[in-house]
Amino acid sequence: MSLVTAGAVAIGVALAAVTVSSGGGAAVGATPSCRGDHITVASLASGCAVSSGTVVLPDGRRFTVPPVGTTVQALPVAASGAGDPGDVSLTNTGRAGLAVRVDDHWSGSPAAVRQERAAVQHRNAALGSTSGAATTTATTSAPSSCSNKTYTRLGVRWASRVDWRYNATGQKVAGVTAIRAGADAWTGALSSCGKKVASTASDRYLGTATEAPGVTAAGGCGSSSGTSVAGWGSLRSGTLAVTCVWSRSGVAVEVDERYSTAVAWSVSTTCTGTRFDLRGVATHEWGHGFGLGHTAQSSGLVMKPASTTCETGQRTLGLGDLMGIDALY
């Protein structure tokens, strides 16, 4: 992710430098166990097995420890020009401990990191050809979404239809139609940039929800509820939305989306002013929900990590987006 390279490096340095401050000891001869609501990333390096609690990143994002065998990923999309803290993946391997990844920087239990890195490589290889792996470099010409073939994968996909609900609490606009359109942009018979594919990705909107999405105001992920929910809430300045995806052995089991209540949104066919196009941002977030990662900002694709105001072009898949969903489904 070219937009966040500097931020990722800074976070990597912080992860390496932060001191152990979490509580929780272990009996003599037993595997160490980290507990509490402030488990630091540095403490995980001991290889401690973690059954519960909250992991706090140096940048303040908090993640409820997922069950053993579960990975949770947080994928933010930023307003163009704003800082992006990076994509996070947290995997609970059980006895080997927790593996933490911020963009391309791994930390946590060394054994868990080795195990999860190998698993991600294996899953991505099994998900299809790697010919579309992101190789975009900066260019002085205007980006063209129909000339860029790049895509990245999160290492997860759905084995079944995604059933989801919408929580309208705090909504800035009547957003369910736009968010549904964002999901549907990745499913069924797709045609873009002169190319046609048949995507087996599938979703079904089940109606409204009373529960909030499991995404925190700081951009981390809470507990999985078993129900996929899209909704609204406060987020860090410059962050438009965050998607959290829970998976087990590469199979996605829940996706929650939180859209910022601090920015102005548009759901009109045409967009004017300093509003952000909800349908376009939702298309990006559902790309994450179905298993795609970020491409370079210069790619001009739906899956680039930042959006500008009134970017209605992000409603339409570019060539790399199309190739990515075709590789996954």
Rank of each mutant, 00 (worst) to 15 (best):
V68R: 01
L15M: 15
D277N: 09
C146R: 09
S298V: 14
R165F: 09
T283L: 07
I179C: 15
P85R: 11
G23M: 07
E311G: 13
A159L: 09
A30N: 05
A16Q: 10
S191C: 10
S266I: 08
L292V: 06
I39C: 04
V28N: 03
S51E: 08
L15F: 02
A230P: 08
L57Y: 04
A183F: 10
S247V: 09
G175E: 14
S131I: 11
S129I: 13
Y151T: 13
S109H: 00
L44P: 05
V156W: 09
L206D: 14
D326K: 13
R117T: 14
S299H: 03
T136A: 15
G108R: 01
G47K: 00
G83F: 08
G320T: 09
V156T: 15
G324W: 09
R114S: 15
S43L: 01
R153F: 02
S266H: 04
W232S: 10
G97E: 00
S191R: 15
V102F: 00
H294A: 06
G219V: 03
G47Q: 00
L278F: 03
V65R: 05
D326V: 07
L206M: 14
T210W: 04
P66W: 01
W186P: 12
V9K: 02
L240K: 01
A45W: 00
M323V: 06
G207S: 08
L190G: 08
Q297M: 04
T136D: 14
A306P: 02
D321Q: 11
V176M: 11
V65H: 04
T135W: 05
L3N: 11
S107D: 15
G287V: 02
A118L: 10
T54W: 01
W286Y: 13
R279D: 11
M1A: 12
T91H: 14
T309Q: 12
L278P: 01
V20Y: 01
S141G: 14
R61P: 09
Q297T: 07
G300Q: 00
V255S: 06
D256N: 05
T272I: 05
H294K: 07
E285H: 07
R157N: 09
T227G: 00
S225R: 11
Q314R: 15
R62E: 11
G86M: 02
R204S: 14
V251G: 03
G233E: 06
Q121I: 09
L190W: 05
I11K: 07
H294F: 03
P213F: 08
G182V: 08
P85S: 11
R165Y: 12
T208K: 02
V13I: 12
S107C: 11
A112T: 09
N148L: 07
S192M: 11
G320E: 06
A198K: 12
G29Y: 03
A178Y: 12
G97S: 07
G220P: 10
T274F: 01
T177D: 15
Q297C: 02
E311W: 04
A209N: 01
V77P: 00
D326F: 07
H284L: 13
L328P: 03
T243G: 04
